[in-house]
């Protein structure tokens, strides 16, 4: 992160999966590192089970709060179909860290569309893809809702921030009563293959 180009990170998922919290921790670690950061999300109607995307840009100087197609360095995908939906945002050497979770959208539930098959293979054609069972790590950590932080842990170790800084960002962002579970989930993600 010494060059002038910001690092672009997309966090994608389904409304209600906890993408915003993951974005908050990520932004906070960037702030703590002394870098410029911008964070963009959409509230309102899309939050009700729709496709959601949070955009985080970190660098020496960040102008636009949003990321353009073909320029994302990292994607945290909380759900497979959402990873595919936003895959055109990735740069050719980008890294996608994806939970194996699948959630049928309404057109699939009603039979109007089919859930695409073989998503990890399709994504691998143009990006470096790491899949993890984030839901399982969350259960191991003690709360199924900590899957977001497990996923964050996996991508965290590829980013230029120290483990200590991540721990500080977690403790500054997550309410004290949920901190222990989320630190455990983060560690499981950090150590995942």
């Amino acid at each position: 992160m010494t060059d002038s180009r910001p690092v672009n990170i997309l966090i994608v998922g389904v409304g209600g999966q906890g993408t915003i919290l993951a974005g908050k921790v990520l932004s906070q670690v960037a702030v703590l590192s002394g870098r410029d950061v911008k964070f963009s999300e959409i509230h309102g109607m899309a939050q009700r089970g729709g496709s959601v995307v949070t955009q985080v840009r970190v660098g020496e100087r960040v102008w636009s709060p949003t990321i353009d197609p073909g320029t994302a360095d990292f994607m945290l995908a909380f759900e497979q179909l959402e990873a595919l939906r936003w895959s055109h945002m990735m740069r050719p050497d980008g890294v996608i860290v994806m939970s194996i979770t699948t959630i049928d959208p309404m057109p699939v539930i009603t039979g109007a569309a089919e859930y695409p098959l073989g998503i990890p293979d399709r994504l691998s054609e143009s990006a470096h893809v790491i899949t993890i069972d984030a839901a399982d790590y969350a259960l191991q950590a003690g709360n199924p809702k900590s899957a977001n932080v497990a996923l964050l842990g996996r991508v965290a170790r590829m980013m230029p921030f120290s483990r200590d800084l991540w721990e500080q960002a977690l403790s500054e962002t997550i309410p004290a009563r949920h901190l222990a579970v989320n630190r455990k989930a983060f560690e499981l993600g950090w150590n995942a293959l």
Binding site: G15, R48, L81, R85, S87, H88, P92, P105, V108
Partner: peptide
Amino acid sequence: PVLTVPAKVPMRPPVMC
């Protein structure tokens, strides 16, 4: 140039909880 194109995937409209 933008070299990437969006994949054709089912929409995920918002829904009642």
